[in-house]
Every structure is written in C-alpha cells, then in structure tokens.
Design a binder for these strands. Sequence first.
RNA 1: GCACUCGUAGCUCAGCUGGAUAGAGCACUCGCCUUCUAAGCGAGUGGUCUCAGGUUCGAAUCCUGACGGGUGUACCA
Length: 568
Amino acid sequence: MKIKSQLNQIIKDALDSANIETKEDISVSDATKPEFGDYQFNGAMKLARTLRRNPREIASDIIKEINTTTLISKVEVAGAGFINIWIDNSWLSKELTKIIDDKRVGVGVVADKKRIVVDYSGPNMAKQMHVGHLRSTIIGDTLANLFRFLGHDVIPQNHIGDWGTQFGMLIAYLEELEEDNNRQNLQDLEQFYKDAKVRFDKSQKFKDKAREYVVKIQQGDSHCLKLWREFIDISLGHCEEVYSKLGVKLTKDDVRAESFYNPMLPKVIDTLKDRGMLVESNGAKCVFLENSNTPVIVQKSDGGYLYATTDLAGLWFRANELKVDRVSYVVDARQSEHFKQIFTIAKRANMVPDNVKLEHIAFGTMMDKSGRPFKTRDGGTVKLIDLLDEAVLRAKETIKDRDSYSDSKDLDRVAKAIGIGAVKYADLSINRESNYLFSWDKMLSFDGNTALYMQYAYARIASIFRKYNQELNGKIVISDELEHRLGLMILKFEDTLLKASEDGYPHIITSYLYDLVTLFMKFYENNPILKDNIDRDTQISRLLLSKLTANTIKKGLEILGIEVVDKI
RNA sequence: GCACUCGUAGCUCAGCUGGAUAGAGCACUCGCCUUCUAAGCGAGUGGUCUCAGGUUCGAAUCCUGACGGGUGUACCA
C-alpha cells in the first residue's frame, strides 16, 4: 500500500481548498513519536516565511480542509506548526483484510517499468572467491530481487574477470598437470595459483611458455583457447558452488565476462577519437577530464587496453544492445572515482543516452575486530566457501540442543537457513557505504537486529498456526494501539521497498523488518490469541494479523535472499 | 600535494529531502514463564551527535574551516 503518496495528495488538496499556493514539494514524513500520531506534515512552518503568516495559523487553515473521511481519522496542530496525522482504524482494518491472501502482501507493481542491469559479484577466475566478493554478491542479489519484485525488468550481469596476463601462467600449468593426468590441484584454486607461481618463478622455460600462451590466447590459438575455456569452466564451477550455498540466483546465463567485450574495444577508442576526446600522452591514449591532472587511460602505449576501456564497452553494450534505463554497479567504494570517470566519459561521448541512469552502488570494506581488512589468522584471504561452511556449523552448534528437530536432516536444514541468513543479514543490515565490521560473535549471537530474530518471530507465528490448526476465515478488526501500529507497519511495506530501491539501500528493508518484528513481539506479549476467554472475532482478527506479519517477514527476507523456517 | 569518504552512548550501528525532550542492539542493573517457542517482553543506567564558525524561527542533518580515521590518485582490475 502506497500510503505516503495518498497522504501527500490529501494535503495538496487541502492546500488548494485553503487557497494556499506553494511551489515546494508536499511530503509527509513518519511521525517522530507515537504521541504525535502516525505521520506528520511540517510544511506549514516552511510556508510561514513566504506567506509572512503565523505557522500555527496556516496549519490550522490547512487542517480545516483535510479530508478525514477515508484513511485519516484525526489531525491536529501541535508545537510550532506541526500537523499530526492519525490513520483511521476502520480504514486500516479494511485494507489489511483485503490483502490477507495476497502473495505480494499488498505491494503493487510499479507503473513506470524500467529495464535495469544489476552488475554484481564479478569474481576473478584466476582465484577462488573470497570474503571480498561477499558484499557485492549479496547486495547485488538483493537489489536484483527487489527491482524484480517491484515489477522491473532486471538483467543480472556477472562481469567475471577472465582475461589478463595471469591466465597464460595458469593454462600453461594446467597443461602440464593434464600431461601428468593430475587435476586434483584444481579443487583448490588458491593453491593451484600458488603452485603455478612457484613453477613460474623457478623455471625460465615455463616462464617463456606462460608468456607465449598469453599472446596465443589473444591471437585465438585453438589449443590455448581450449585450455583457457577449460580453466574458466572449472573456476566458474567453484563460484556456482558458492552461489548455491549462498542462495544467490546468479547462473551461467548471467555471465558476461570481461573477454566478451574484447572485440568492442577498438570501437571504443574510435568513438572517443571521433568525438575529439582522445589525447595522446606519453604514448598512451587518454581522456582528460576537467578538475583532474591525471588522465583516464584507455589504451596503453603498448597497444593494450585497460579496465576503463572494457567498462566503457560494457556501458555501450548495455545502453545500445540491452537497451536499459538504468545500470547499477555493485562494486567496492574504492572504485568510485573510476565509475565517476567512465560515467562522465560515456555520456559525453554519447555512448550512453542522457536519460539512462548510471549509478555506482558503492560499499565499504569488510574489516575484522581490530579494524583491519578481514584476513585469516596467518594473513591470507578467507575463502568464501569456508566462511559459509563455518557459519552453518556455528549455527548448528547453537541450536542443536533445542527440541524442535525431528531428525538430523531437519537440524541441518534449519542450521543452513540460520547460518547463511546470519551472514547475509549482518552485511545487508548496515548502511552499505560504511565499512563493515565482520564478527562471528555478533552475527551468530542471534540477538537484536539479526536474521534469527526475524526467523524466530516467523517460527513463533508458524507455531501458533500449528496449534490453532483450523480453517481461518474472517476479517481483521484493529482494536487497540498495538494492533494499530502493527497493522500500519504491515501496510508500510510498499513505501519501504520503494524507498530502498530508489538509491539501492538494502538496510532500509532490514530496519523495517526489525521494526515490524519488534512491534509484533510486543503485540504478541500483550494480546493473547489462543488463550481462554478470547472471543472468536478477536481471535480470528489477531490470527489474521499474525498471518500478515508472517507473510511480510517471509517476503521481506525472500528479497534479502534469506530463508524462513517453521520451527527453531 | 590533490580528490573522495567517514567521525552519533563503553562497543556495533540507525537517524542526515533541516523540525518537537537524539534512537536501537550488545554490555551493565532490576522485574516478568503452573510456558499461544523467555533465543521473548518491560523498566533503568549511559550523549557538549569530533571541534569552531556560518545560514535559519529551528542544525546530528545544509555551508565553510580545523582536527582525527579510511580510501583513491598515468599505462593492474
């Protein structure tokens, strides 16, 4: 339910009726406290200046004209000229009852459907996925889910790193191992890379071969290309294992590798040249942007291309071949300058039309407890697969003594949902732009704003329904303050999702879910449902309210890529 | 050097299209189970929102500067 836009319209109508003209955006905001109602409109105080009138007088003129026959039950002027707005209980009851069986929990589909590329994950094929890839992967997947749910046409793109000098070394080594009929090593790419490097450093003959193979791949030599494809395939297989554990929806079909853009690179240079943007400096082909002395290099003095060139080709492809309206790059904040540069260049060179929204969904670095970038005890990178396995193991350890599980398979399933959910939620629940402090203790303590708190609430509701175990027909009747707040919160789901999708902030969704669940827990403590002496209508209404809460939690977590379970 | 970014309770974080006494969780103190899952709920302790100016009826939020942390900065991605 889009509540805010309806309220804004009511306020606008009231201003018209009161003959108050304004150019400013009319927008209500959430009330800062329950005693100030559900929403507030603070515009009267802004209007006071231009109208040269007392803000309280303006406010009272406005509230006289506010339509209180539908969703608003009461308005009042308070303080310096605030207008406090209460939402009507019978309206709430009616709207909530309408969406009891709605799979979308009252969330509509956007009117202006966009085609959106979400570029995320982007692992390097030369190495195994490590914790550095976690944030891009899960934030990107969440945004893709969110956009899709809201009705947009989403094209996920996994821009894997499958090109570069290190692949000469890797395939040369792969070839040697195959001759020895030994590919065990590829189980661990990290180790494979190290072994290859040792071989590279030790043997001049191998070194020469590696360099020769780099050139050969680029020239399209069939033997080397075959080895290269084989290697990429294996490496991608590792990634898919991680995606599957993580519950991330990326597939092979979403892969649009770096190498895919190779044929387009000369055209990028030509385009920039045609537009008169290309400058040669110290043998390299560059684009100089104002406010910066350092150029963006698009072609090296030796003729090689750089990642700026590839990204420009990617932008061109997405705008002209995929014909998208928006491109969201979910990439580490350290690359913000790079994106600023290529976005500027792409637009200036008309490689991307002006109306296409290009955005860098930047995120901070993952830190350990001491505030340093996250590493293993011996200073190496933490493999993502190991981290996920550990999360599940730790989750299992904390829940195994509860008596909710019929067998070990059951326990495994729940442990997986909780462990993986904990990792994802911990990351998604903080503002993506901040550096993120990774702590097992925190995410697996299962207290506060964590995945488990949501999953627990869901399981409690499921438990109520197991106990009730009857047909459920009837309507919701909001009859006290807690029900009012809970019911309204459920209806705010759509406004929340729309806000989160605007600039791509998943933590807006987690904050909402946390508020929702906190309210539900209070409601649940104070409003008995299946206990004695509860009349039938009240019981049905409370059950339905619980059901809607569960539906909202489930849908919200689903967007975040987190599973719910019926028992914990 | 220049650019970007962050600085809110002991710790981890919300809040930042300017609005009413700045909010959570953890930690600490205290209360609530003859159990609709207590992994819960309630109450309390804890703040010169880094500092100094400015704009404003009103600033954690906007602007300027200082201090402190992080990051980036010509042929890696």
